[in-house]
């Protein structure tokens, strides 16, 4: 099963380390954004969807789903129209993609090739970010993540 970066909102402390890790491993552009909801600060990361809207939206075929499941933006094909940014249902593709230099999250392909985890996951001080297979992680998320009972997860920390 392909591995993905998961955010356990229950553990997130809003330090912004994931964003900094991305910034300093992607030439000063961060693909992990973090925003605030009234109770906490939470990171937004590309989920590398099974059926990605950004791939369908791209007029030039510049975003491709690779064999290992990574949704990768091909630099040379991108015309900078920003369609992917609009299409993304999670709002994780920065509109700054027009600068021709920013990448969408590439799951740190080079680090993966070396057998390491993506930078944001390795850096995360609280263990909120995990790099795991989709099926491995879900059960634990139900147990700790507190999505039981319909309560918002971050209220279940206490």
């Amino acid at each position: 099963m392909a591995k993905r970066v998961f955010v356990n909102l229950d553990y997130c402390i809003g330090c912004g380390s994931c964003s900094a890790a991305c910034y300093y491993s992607h030439n000063g552009f961060t693909n992990v954004h973090y925003g605030s909801v009234p109770e906490a600060t939470i990171p937004f990361i590309c989920r590398h969807c099974e059926d990605p809207a950004c791939v369908a939206a791209c007029p030039n075929g510049a975003i491709k789903k690779l064999d290992n499941g990574v949704i990768k933006r091909m630099n040379m094909l991108c015309v900078g129209c920003g369609s992917c940014s609009l299409a993304c249902p999670f709002g994780v593709i920065d509109p700054g993609i027009r600068s021709y230099t920013i990448l969408k999250c590439d799951l740190c392909i080079e680090r993966l090739a070396d057998g390491k985890e993506p930078a944001c996951v390795t850096a995360c001080p609280s263990g909120a970010l995990r790099f795991e297979g989709v099926s491995e992680v879900s059960e634990e998320y139900i147990l700790i993540g507190g999505r039981v009972g319909g309560q918002h997860p971050i209220f279940r920390r206490r």
């Binding site: 330090c15 912004g16 380390s17 900094a20 890790a21 300093y24 491993s25 850096a123 995360c124 001080p125």
Partner: peptide
């Protein structure tokens, strides 16, 4: 680039944003 240091007893390779400033 920053490389993490998983064997270090204090942080096990994890870094906060300030740790990443080493590069800068």
């Amino acid at each position: 680039g920053i490389e993490y240091y998983p064997e270090h007893p204090v942080n096990n390779g994890r870094l906060c944003p300030r740790g990443h400033y080493a590069l800068e």
